[in-house]
Design a binder for these strands. Structure first.
Lengths: 205, 205, 205, 205
DNA sequence: TATGAATGAGACTTCATTCAT
DNA sequence: GATGAATGAAGTCTCATTCAT
């Protein structure tokens, strides 16, 4: 990943800026966030941000790409450690919900801002996000081969449905200031719905 | 619904402005849309918008409330015409996907901007949107009573899952410029997944 | 000349802004002038300038084109009222020097900023300025036809030489805060040099 | 000439910076040139420039003074090698035009930026430039004493006229990207105009 | 001496909103 | 009611200059 800006000690500063951006963007949204706020949060001068990022858009996109890249690498490793497709699906779902706690700010930014970006940054293709969806596809395809999931399952639709369900519940969780939902209960319910919903009638199980 | 602004002939102008706002917001997003563009699109002067709406935020919220109100009233009527919970769920899902064609702009605005608003307009509670979700809850509760859906189904989670799945697929549809997805196929797949996923084991069916 | 911005009463405001820009640019130079200063000088808000001009560059270029256009039209009329080429040359020279008094600010801006623009605003061609030079060419060509000036006179060079001489003396005049040069004496000397320098040996006279 | 900054090995570095500044200033103009560009062009760090020059202004002024000083010394030597005033004038004119080829960048900077500086660097008096003009004055005074030029010639005006003519033609040459003018033809024409224009009627020659 | 990352003041420009007509 | 010219607060970004290394 080509990184702009000063090297060496600068990497830590760049990371501080990204973390600050996540914090501020997640609190106020991209358009309501000020570069000066991010700079203050990161403990640098306004101009310093422009040593590491081309402009405000680039800050958001770098954040997507780099942080989402880490999330994708992480979930891939976890999923691969799983057994059959069902257990992998469980791992994926549980991991997604646990991200809400581990990386709350990042998830909030992605949830809210990625939609904007999808539509309004013409040239931007959210590669990492598509990779995340691909992890679901992989599980579903495997499940079909394993005879666990229906053979006529439309993987494209199903992976969107699964992601959408997770995403919406995450959003509700994030918006409920008091965090009244229990992420574990949510995982369990979602897993159960999709396990049943995708399963081959009278399948192996 | 308390309507600000002039009555009578004004109502048509107000409607023109709302329609223009949907068009512009759906194309460029709320923050990238200019009041002057909406005015031009509506064929009124910039200042005229302020006779009907308090400010730019109010325009967006009015749009949510009023148009979403119509959508909710419409889907309620359709669902009530259905039979058991399963057929009602089918109607709801098909109606949602067909909205993509009937009210593309409105759906795009709601999908993209409602998330922003949820988080960043502190005092705004998206009443109509919650009513829309309640239509799903109603179906699910009825399904439980009818013995079609599991008794231990977590309705709160399930309704979010269903809405999330529909919403994500809608988004993918809307983003794919060529509209390559077939909304009917999407409805069918989503219905099938949830019908199975919610069903009572060895249930009535 | 296509004029941006509000019409009607706006024309006067546009003119006020142009006059203010001449005043400020001539005092401090284009790059050292602030839009806010010009706005204050013109008695308008900063943003108002952008109703009439696309940006700061456009303000400078509009100033060149429109004011220089007036100057060119004026000198053409005066020159045409003259008799033979020599008397026309005299009129041109005297008019140029008298502009220093009538339109001091404008001349200063043109003298100092036109050079910058020539070199650094890639796409800008100073049409009016070239027309001004063409007035000299016209006189020189006529003088050759009339047998007053040498037949082998290089008009392109000569018109540059005449303009350059006038321009340099104008600059010296403008820079000498006390205006110690006498514009009339300057006109006379310049005229004499060029009248002799261009004349046909043993010519009509 | 008091030279700030390190001596010895530093002198070469200082010279590199000045040459780089000429290149960049002549291409983009003073205000559009960045210290960082000059540093890159000179192969030094941004901060290094401040070891040799007080600030950006000082870099421009040093450039004027030092390089123009060399030009003045050079033209003085050449002119002194000439014979009577007319031949000296010819030498001066030819030398000026040939500078366009030998020192293109420097001449461009002086032509474009000196005007700015004249007006906007309050405290700066362009000593070397005045010395350059004095070379012309010297020739003209001598010519008057020698009986070649008119006794009533206004030397102050004439030297400005000569310089202005040369300067304007130089500018046209520099701006015509294709260098379509022939500097030798230009010298010849300018010399002829002024030789005739300054000459004593029925003078010696 | 030399470096170049960091600073932060300040410029241009945008645009929601107002209000005289 | 309707208009749209005018306002001016505020944001992004630039870049000359500094200073710790």
């Amino acid at each position: 990943m080509a990184r702009r800006g000063p090297q060496g000690g600068g990497a830590a500063k760049r990371e501080r800026i990204l973390r600050a951006a996540i914090r501020i963007f997640s609190q106020k949204g991209y358009f309501n966030s000020r570069i000066s706020e991010i700079a203050r949060e990161a403990g640098v001068a306004d101009g310093t941000i422009y040593l590491y990022f081309k402009n405000k858009d680039d800050l958001l996109i770098s954040l997507f790409e780099e942080k989402m890249g880490e999330v994708v690498a992480d979930v891939r490793a976890r999923v691969e450690a799983g057994g059959d497709a069902l257990s992998r699906l469980k791992i994926f779902i549980e991991n997604h919900m646990s991200l809400l706690i581990r990386e709350a700010g990042l998830i909030e930014v992605i949830q809210v801002e990625l939609r904007q970006s999808n539509k309004f940054m013409k040239e931007y293709i959210p590669v990492r996000f598509l990779e995340y969806l691909d992890v679901i596809s992989g599980i579903l395809e495997a499940g079909k081969r394993e005879g666990i999931f229906r053979h006529d399952l439309n993987v494209t639709m199903a992976r969107r449905a699964i992601f959408g369900a997770l995403d919406e519940i995450s959003l509700a969780y994030v918006l409920s200031r008091k965090r009244k939902y229990d992420p574990d209960a949510a995982s369990a319910e979602i897993f159960r719905i999709f396990a049943e919903g995708l399963k081959r009638e009278g399948g192996k199980e």
